[in-house]
C-alpha cells in the first residue's frame, strides 16, 4: 500500500519535472555543448569542415591579430569590473545606508534610485549618447555654462574617456539594484543588535564597519557575483554606445563585442569566423563559470548566520 503510493507520487513528481528538464536540456545544455563542439572544427561560413583540435583556441589566444584583440578586450572587461565595483556597488552601498538611516526625502529617493533600473538598456544608451554629445550634450553645455569649457570633451571619441563614459552610464542605469539588495540586507539586521551598539558607540563609521558591513555579507555575495558575471558578459551598452568594433580604435572593445564580431562578422570584418568565435565563447564561459563559483564559495565563507 505504502510503496504503491510512493511510486504514484514519484511518477507524479517525475511527470512534473521532466518537461522543464527536457526544455532546459534542449534550449540550454544542448546549445552550450554544441558550442563546445563547434570550437574544435574548421568553418567555411556556416558549413562545418574538418576537426582541427585546439587550433581555434590557439588562434584566439596566440595568433595575430586575434590574440591582440583578445587581450585588449579582456583588459577592458577587468577595468569594467573594478570600475563598476566602485561606481555601482560602492555607491549602491552608500545609497542603501542613507536610505536605511532614513535621511530626509528617503521615501522619494528609494523610488528615484531604482527608477533607471527599469529602463531598457537601449533607452539608457541613447540618453547617455545625447548627454555626452560633443555639440549639444548636457554635459558639455553645463561645463561651458559653468565657465569650465576647457573640460568639455568629445567624450565618446577619445580612447581615454570612451570606456569610462560607458561605465558611468552603466552605473547610473544599474546602481538601484545593489542599493535595493543592500537595503534589504540592512533591514534584516535585528534591532536588538543595533540598540546594543548604540550603547557602545555613536560613531557611524564604527557601526558600518563592525556591524552593518559584516551583517550584509549575504547581500554582498549576491551583488559581487552578479557584477562579476555581468562585467565579463558586458555587451549591450558598449554595442549601443561604441559600436560593434569598439570605437574609437578598440578602446571600448570588450569580450562580448569581440566574440559577436568574430562569430557573426561585422561591416568591417571579412565574414563570419565561426570557429574562433566559438572558441572565444567557450573561453569566456569557462572563465566566468570557474571564477564566479570560486568567488561565491569564498564570499560565502565570510557570511555570518544570524
Amino acid at each position: 500500500m505504502f510503496t504503491t503510493r510512493l511510486t504514484g507520487r514519484n511518477l507524479w513528481i517525475a511527470a512534473l519535472i521532466l518537461p522543464p528538464l527536457a526544455f532546459m536540456c534542449l534550449f540550454l545544455v544542448y546549445p552550450i555543448l554544441s558550442a563546445f563542439a563547434y570550437a574544435f572544427y574548421e568553418w567555411h561560413g556556416l558549413a562545418r569542415g574538418e576537426f582541427i583540435g585546439l587550433a581555434n583556441f590557439h588562434k584566439v589566444l596566440f595568433e595575430y591579430p586575434f590574440s591582440e584583440r583578445t587581450v585588449n578586450a579582456f583588459v577592458h572587461n577587468i577595468f569594467v569590473f573594478f570600475a563598476l565595483m566602485v561606481l555601482q556597488n560602492g555607491v549602491g552601498f552608500v545609497l542603501a545606508y542613507c536610505l536605511w538611516r532614513e535621511l530626509p526625502g528617503a521615501r522619494f529617493h528609494r523610488i528615484a534610485v531604482f527608477l533607471p533600473v527599469v529602463l531598457s538598456t537601449v533607452i539608457v544608451a541613447i540618453l547617455w549618447k545625447l548627454f555626452l554629445h560633443p555639440l549639444f550634450g548636457v554635459v558639455n553645455i553645463s561645463l561651458r555654462g559653468l565657465g569650465l569649457g576647457f573640460l568639455a570633451q568629445p567624450w565618446q571619441g577619445q580612447d581615454t574617456t570612451a570606456l569610462t563614459a560607458i561605465v558611468v552610464a552603466n552605473a547610473w542605469h544599474m546602481v538601484g539594484f545593489p542599493t535595493l539588495v543592500f537595503l534589504a540586507g540592512m533591514q534584516r539586521i535585528p534591532t536588538e543588535i543595533l540598540d546594543a551598539v548604540r550603547m557602545e558607540t555613536e560613531s557611524e563609521w564604527v557601526k558600518v564597519r563592525k556591524i552593518v558591513w559584516p551583517l550584509v555579507a549575504p547581500s554582498a555575495t549576491v551583488v559581487f557575483t552578479l557584477l562579476f558575471v555581468s562585467a565579463f558578459n558586458f555587451f549591450e551598452l558598449p554595442f549601443l554606445m561604441g559600436g560593434v568594433d569598439g570605437s574609437p580604435h578598440g578602446a571600448t572593445d570588450v569580450l562580448g563585442l569581440y566574440f559577436y564580431r568574430t562569430a557573426f562578422g561585422s561591416m568591417s570584418a571579412s565574414a563570419e569566423n565561426f570557429g574562433p568565435g566559438s572558441a572565444l565563447a567557450v573561453l569566456i564561459f569557462l572563465f566566468i563559470a570557474i571564477l564566479s563559483s570560486a568567488i561565491t564559495l569564498w564570499l560565502r565563507k565570510r557570511e555570518i548566520q544570524l
Binding site: G157, Q158, D245, H249, S268, A269, S270, N273
Partner: peptide
Amino acid sequence: FRYGEPTGSNLIQAGVQKLLNGQ
C-alpha cells in the same frame, strides 16, 4: 582588403581614429 584578418577596414578605421585624435 576585406579577405583576411585584420581587414584593411579594421586597420584604416583604427589608424584614422588615431590620426584624428593626434595619436
